[in-house]
Design a binder for these strands. Structure first.
Lengths: 243, 243
DNA sequence: CAGTGGTCTAGACCACAGG
DNA sequence: CTGTGGTCTAGACCACTGC
């Protein structure tokens, strides 16, 4: 039984990958269990072995499966969500978890960048950036302060006129032709100052998870620099490392 | 000129990948520049296109290259170190950066695990774990406190007799037949308590980067659970996200 | 339209693990 | 030894981009 569709337009390797993912999440394939060999899967789905290998590659990189040369491919013991090192927006993230994201605009303005930020955004010192400061909420509880800086030259016009309580910057930039491709995050710990504590409902000196992110577009150029101050109790940053 | 070796035992796609990596790091291929198409590279190196694609896959996942469907493959503008989501030990990490890692053993003991840790290590409540508490130093400056818990049944015997100022737990477990394969880290912010502040040379209430890690062996079973308290000024946790 | 990367095939031989 | 995953080929057609 394979049930692959050659006319759906969805690549076979993705259909197979998602079928395997379902089999795992539905318990048909249990943690620690060996899945059929690549040859067997190829016959079962009626595709070539290279296509099966492409299907497995995604699940392997997520850590959902692991291989042993000369032995077989196994379902990992701890289930790992698919998106741990995937770039997602705050809005997408929250919606995917069935939560209700919203934002409160604290400030939006244009400003001149200093040397440091200019370097990160690959622009020149003195260039103009749009600076967007938002309080992010999940189910109406404040969880993070985000300060985004985007070079003015790649910004959609009239940024001030959007409804930032609902508008995703991520989606806006994509709609404006900047397909986002990759990001680098640096994570650290900081103490809440007076303003941060007030906005996040904490006390001065409480710990915050501080994340800096540079997001790159399809052409490899930096698109935004974001600083995030996260409530440590409501934001979990989990990553998967591989050998 | 291709200069690939069929007798070195090194797979062709790795030889090609490293050749491309060199061309980039030596400036023969500049950031933003388009590299030859997959077909051209295949002819140039005398291999099939699939082999070229395999070579590129590694560089793409590192962010060193990026592709645009229908356009070409380009060298990324910001160089990214190879190991951002690679699992490495504290010792390996430091040595790779040309620094001098050392440790100070604070405590080593066997203890009974509670329900929570047992779950993380996929063992039973009441099982025995070896608990290793170390102060990690770089060039003799304390940078982190690490508390590792390893199920007794997979521990090498007589753990107490090792010289923990030099011994890497990572290497010891590998030498004892537990090839480490994958890890999941959860990152958060905490405040230093009295003991932590003293060990790390900070004040009570200073912010610490708190990381929990579960490391998995080749067979997919958890091998160790580690809690790390890092000085935020001397530890940078940087990860690369991809779409 | 031509050029590029995206997907896919139907084989092949090798390296490794385990019985 | 058998079965597994690791590497590799020499094609093919499709989807996307930019001219």
């Amino acid at each position: 039984m394979n049930s692959l569709s050659h006319i759906s337009g969805i690549p076979l390797y993705i259909q197979i990958r998602e079928k395997l993912r379902q089999d795992i999440s539905h318990g048909l394939l249990l943690p620690g269990q060996k899945i059929p060999s690549e040859d067997q899967l190829a016959k079962q789905f009626g595709v070539s072995r290279m296509t099966i290998r492409q299907s497995l590659a995604g699940l392997l990189s997520e850590g959902l499966l692991h291989k042993q040369h000369g032995v077989g491919t196994y379902v990992s013991h701890v289930r790992i969500a698919a998106n741990y090192t995937r770039m997602t927006s705050f809005t997408q993230d929250a919606l995917a978890q069935g939560k209700n994201p919203s934002s409160e605009l604290i400030d939006i303005k244009k400003s001149v960048v200093g040397e440091e930020i200019a370097k990160l955004l690959a622009i020149h010192k003195g260039d103009i950036v749009v600076c967007l400061k938002r309080l992010r909420k999940i189910n109406e509880h404040p969880v993070a302060i985000q300060i985004s800086q985007v070079p003015e030259k790649i910004c959609p016009p009239e940024l001030e006129n959007y409804d930032w309580s609902r508008q995703s910057l991520f989606e806006l930039l994509e709609a404006h032709g900047h397909r986002l491709n990759r990001a680098i995050e640096t994570i650290n710990a900081r103490l809440a100052d007076k303003e941060q504590a007030k906005l996040l409902g904490l006390h001065i000196g409480d710990p915050l998870l501080y994340i800096e992110r540079i997001t790159f577009g399809d052409n490899g150029m930096p698109v935004e620099f974001v600083e995030m101050y996260n409530r440590p109790d409501s934001y979990r940053c989990t990553i998967t490392l591989t050998r």
